[in-house]
Structures are given as structure tokens and as C-alpha cells.
Design a protein around this nucleic acid. Structure first.
Lengths: 353, 353
DNA sequence: CTGAAAGCGCTTACAG
DNA sequence: CTGAAAGCGCTTACAG
């Protein structure tokens, strides 16, 4: 056993470096502060001493005095929803490029972020990103009062005075309706996700609204109840057992749609020949050969960019619109789960003639 | 536009609370330090004042003086590998229960964690978890010198003096070999993941080693090159086109195995009737109805528990074994992708007789 | 450009 | 149990 008591050793401080370099502690600090006034000569001496001693500025001490932690809290409730790991990676990339860091809160079983709020505020974070969760209005107002920007990611709360960044889910739903109409589908169904999520509500609203405008009757509206594979599978299973089946199903998310495709196939029906399927998100799985899912791609990179803009109060102290809801456009990605039923008609007509 | 310049307002300090409560600043501090010596009466006064002013202790200031940040750095390279979001959630749950917090580093494209090391050290983290990445030996020794525990999660480096926590991948591979042998498979193949990952190497070694002991020839060893769906798909596709096909394939991970199942089906073959398939990890997808993948489950909860034990230097300052490699047992989860070929034999025999 | 000094918001011996 | 005081490791006016 080469064990031992584990205890943190005190690390090298700027004063130690200063002594070693024969300069003041201020000079050391200035060397590590971009833009600070320091001569190349002193700087070189400090750098040499720092390297020799293995000095690294203490971000904690710096935070205390600047009251800027360069830490952004990210609260993410549902990591299992495939879409979120993607978001998290993009967020990590983007924030670290701006020299921010991510304090992650996940794994707690709650609908809102209130339980972790105290924790995150104690670290004096510079911003808060809530992905698929929200905050009570008292708490969000506390943030506003404290001057800490909050961004709801992929969710919004109409009456809450908090900035939200979402894909335009209503528009996404409308695009799907149009696409299904254009390809001559006449019995479209919708399968919903988590019931009161704005993502679910808006996709449904856009879809059914546009369908109605186009004079297409909604064949069925199944409540999935969650954005999960299982929810998609069961809902599709129910639809498939109806005496009159839908000719197309729009699922509230890709993972649900994948479940749906599997259920349809399990019933010995073909996608898209018997039933067309469309999802939402464009997670990596959507492009797997066995699914080749037609879906609406969420503009993750742009969404993260906008998030970064809201949080980045360093570069520009200009007036920024606070508390707005940003809807960004998704993009229809055509793959192989929707059949153009006009083709079938045009094939059928000559035979009939 | 109800915008405005976003700037952090100074928050309430312990001195302000002290003034308001008519006690010393020390008393305020003690009120918020579990176990500190404080009378119920003073405590109540402080608590009332704190509530009224909206006081929250400043974790940054506390960290500076205690030289304990209660922050654990988690470096995770491949979030898209489905297994890791699971790990991250479990880690989040476990660490927050111990009042630790996760500083997440992800989204950088690199094999080792050296590039983010500086960042994480500046925050004076209390521990480092490296999932699917490693560290150069200089850096890991720097951690040892600084008394900061490092844990490699799901990966180990034989010559590196760093504690590692892994599933026993060799044992897992052996179990798979035995299972395939017991079920009368005679042409087993292995499809590898990321080439030099210990997970890949050990699973291969356990599998082929045990096969050899059992007198079963390895039918084929395909290099997948990555733990991805696509890698699994292509490898299976190649195997399926051979003049003599394998009767079973062990994939280095579930995501790969799922790709493999799809490739096999795309070739109009059946799983498990024509080819049995086994994966590794037991990610949520493995139990989806369209796959029902037989696999080796990684003991995530136990692995996270052990990780927490290594990092938790608060509770017990006893001697802890440092720098050990912990191999934890996986569990074979039987689902529907392996066919018991003895049955086929016993059915075949009477017909032949 | 440089250094001495104040101070960020806490914890923790120390003395009472 | 309580308070005054030192000090954690920095940044940043201030004066030179």
C-alpha cells in the first residue's frame, strides 16, 4: 500500500513569485492581467520565476476581488434526452472559448431549478443557463435584482420576466404540416411529449393550426406524456391498432419518433410506405441508416451563440435587451421516413385510366 | 425595449447581516458554519436578519480561506457516447449529495486532458475526475504533489500513478466468451472500438483469451476504430459479406452493437437467428424493443460510489490507498440478441435420426 | 512603469 | 458563547 493521507498542499502565491523575481506582488499580478501596464523586462522576470515555481493565478482570489467568477451555472434536468448532451458540448466549447466555465447541475429529480438555486448563487456565478427547466418568478426576479443574467434554453415561460432562447417550435410545426400536405398526406397524427412543455405545446399548435388552414383534418392527437422512446413507441402502437390508421405521424421529438418507427415496424407495417414519420431535433440517431429520419433540425449552434451573447456582459456594456424571447428557425431535414404520396397517385392514375 | 446595462450588483455580506442583527461578523459566520459554537439565541437573531436581507454566504470567499473549493472538475471527452450522460447524471447526484459541485469540461477535441488542466487548477478544485481521457504523467504528478486526488473513470493507464476506476473489462469479455460457448456458438467475432482505449483492449483480451481456453477459434477480429454507431455498422457489414459468416458478434460497446444489428438486418439476416449479438455498457437504448440487446452492464452506481470515496477526504482523514486501479464487476444482462444454438441442435437431431 | 497599501468576504485561532 | 483581529491571494486606485 503506497497510500497516505490526502490533503491539499498550499499552492504557490503571487507574493512568493514576487520574492523570487525580485519585484513587487503587484507586478506579478499585472503580468497575469491582460492589458495591464507592465514593462517587457519585468514581465519576463516574473514569467521566469512563475515557471520555475509552478505558479498559477488563483481564480478564486481573483473572483473575490473582481466579483466576477467567470463561472456560468448550467442546470440540465434531462440529460437522457439525447438532444441535451449535444447542447452541453456546444455550450462547453463556446463558453470555454470566452474563458468562462461551466458549473453543472444535473441528476436532481425536479421540474424546476429552485432546489439548486441556493447552491449556484453561493458561487456567485456570472450567469445561469436553464435547459429544460425553469425558475419560480421570485427567484428569477432575485437574479434580475442581483444583475445576474438568466437564460431559459429550449423552453420559455410566457409571464416570466426571463430571457428565453428557443427554436421556433410553432414555425417548425407549421413546416411539418405543410410538408405533409405537399406530399399528399390526408390522415396526419400528432404524438405529444411532456404535456406542459412549451416545446410540446408549440409544436402541436403550429402543426394542427397549419393543418386546419390547409383544410386537412387532424387524424389523431396522442398524448405521449414524455419525450421518451417508450412514450413514442406506445403511442404509435396505439395508433397502428386503430381501424383507420394515420398515413403520417409527427412526433414531438426524434427519440419519440424512433420509438414510433420501431412500433410501426413491429406491427409489420413499413415506414414510409404505410406510414410516414417526422421527428424534431435532429439528434445523431436520426441519421442512422435504420431510421434515416426526416426531422426538423434545431439550430443548436445559433442558439448557443445567442446564449453566449446574452451572458457576455464583458465585451460590451451597451444596453442589451433584457427579458426577451428569441425564437430561432429550425430547418426541415428530408431523409427517408416521409413518402411523397403524389407519386403513388400519379402511378395509380394511368392504371385507372 | 426594457433593456439595461447588465452588471452585477454587490450582494449582501456577513458584516451587513451582523450590523442588522446587532452581533459580530464572527457570529454570522458561525451561524452558517455547521458545528460552530453559537447560542440558539444569537443564531436566531442572525437567521432573522439574514432572511430579511436576503443573505447567502459567499462560497468564493469561504473557499479562499479554507482552501477547499468544494468543486470537483469533471473532464469528459465524448458526451455523445450515450454511456457518459448516464455517468454524468449519477455523478451529479452523488457529488451534490456530499455538497460538492461539478465544474464540467467538455466539448474540446483532444485525446488527453492537458489542455484544460491549467483552467481547472486555477479554480483550485478539490478533485479531478477524468472520464475517457487521461493526463500526462507530469501533470498527474503535479496533482499528487498538490494533494489533489485524481480519478480516471472508465479508463486506466498502467504506468501512470493515478487511481483508476473501471469495470473489469477483461472479466466482462471472458463472461461473454463463456456465454457464447455455452450457447453453442462456433464462429464468434469481435468488433473493436477506439483502438488504444483500455476498455477496448481489455474486452478484446478477455474475450479472445477465454475463447482460446475453451478451444473455440476466433472467427474474425474487426477493428471498428471508434465506439460509434457508424463504426459498428460498417464492421458488421464487412463481416456479413464474408463467404463464411460469424454466428455471433461481440461488439466493444452497445452503440456499436446497435449499429451492428442494423447492418445485419439491412443484409436481410436475422438477429439472433442468423447471427447473435452482444454489446457492452447497457445504455438505455439496449432495452429498446427493436434491439433487446444482450449486453454486459457496467456498474455505474458502484463506480460512482467508489469515485466519491476516493474524492471524499473530508469525512475520514485516514490513510487511503492512493493510486490503485479498481476493477468492478459488470453483469451479463440476457435479452434477445443471443440464440441458444443448443436448442437448434436438439431440434435438429430427432429429424436427422 | 512600479510599489505600498487597501480591501474583496469570509474563517478561525485567541482571549475573554 | 462571543468579539476583535489576522489573514486567505488576489486587483486596483494612488502616488511616485
Amino acid at each position: 500500500m503506497d497510500g497516505g493521507v490526502i490533503s491539499k498542499k498550499p499552492s504557490v502565491t503571487s507574493s512568493q513569485v514576487a520574492d523570487h523575481a525580485g519585484v513587487s506582488q503587484s507586478a506579478v499580478s499585472r503580468t497575469f492581467t491582460p492589458g495591464a501596464s507592465i514593462s517587457p523586462k519585468t514581465r519576463a522576470k516574473v514569467l521566469a520565476a512563475a515557471k520555475e515555481l509552478g505558479y498559477r493565478p488563483n481564480a478564486i482570489a481573483r473572483s473575490l476581488i473582481t466579483s466576477r467568477s467567470r463561472i456560468i451555472a448550467v442546470v440540465m434536468a434531462y440529460l437522457e434526452n439525447l438532444f441535451y448532451p449535444d447542447v452541453l458540448e456546444e455550450l462547453g466549447r463556446r463558453l470555454s472559448a470566452e474563458n468562462y466555465h461551466v458549473l453543472l447541475f444535473t441528476g436532481f429529480k425536479d421540474r424546476d431549478s429552485d432546489p439548486v438555486f441556493d447552491q449556484l448563487m453561493q458561487y456567485r456565478v456570472d450567469g445561469i443557463i436553464l435547459a429544460s427547466t425553469s425558475l419560480s418568478s421570485e427567484l428569477s426576479e432575485e437574479c434580475t435584482a442581483a444583475g445576474i443574467p438568466v437564460v431559459l434554453f429550449n423552453r420559455y415561460v410566457p409571464n416570466l420576466k426571463v430571457t428565453a432562447i428557443c427554436c421556433d417550435n410553432v414555425a417548425g410545426g407549421r413546416v411539418v404540416a405543410e410538408y405533409l400536405h405537399d406530399t399528399a398526406h390526408v390522415r396526419p397524427a400528432y404524438v405529444g411529449g411532456e404535456h406542459d412543455a412549451t416545446t410540446n405545446l408549440d409544436r402541436a399548435r403550429g402543426f394542427t393550426g397549419r393543418l386546419q388552414e390547409l383544410g386537412v383534418a387532424l387524424h389523431a392527437h396522442e398524448a405521449g406524456g414524455a419525450f421518451s422512446y417508450t412514450a413514442g413507441y406506445s403511442a404509435a402502437d396505439r395508433l397502428v391498432r386503430q381501424s383507420v390508421r394515420p398515413d403520417s405521424i409527427f412526433f414531438a421529438s426524434d427519440v419519440m419518433a424512433v420509438g414510433g418507427v420501431d412500433a410501426i415496424r413491429a406491427a409489420n407495417l413499413r415506414v414510409p410506405d404505410d406510414i410516414s414519420v417526422i421527428g424534431f431535433d435532429d439528434v445523431p440517431m436520426a441519421s442512422w441508416p435504420s431510421y434515416e429520419l426526416t426531422t426538423v433540425r434545431q439550430p443548436i449552434t445559433q442558439m448557443v451563440d445567442e446564449t453566449a451573447k446574452i451572458l457576455d456582459f464583458d465585451k460590451s456594456a451597451i444596453k442589451k435587451p433584457f427579458r426577451k424571447i428569441l425564437f430561432m428557425n429550425g430547418m426541415l431535414v428530408e431523409r427517408k421516413t416521409v413518402m411523397d404520396r403524389r407519386r403513388r397517385l400519379s402511378l395509380a392514375r394511368p392504371a385507372q385510366a
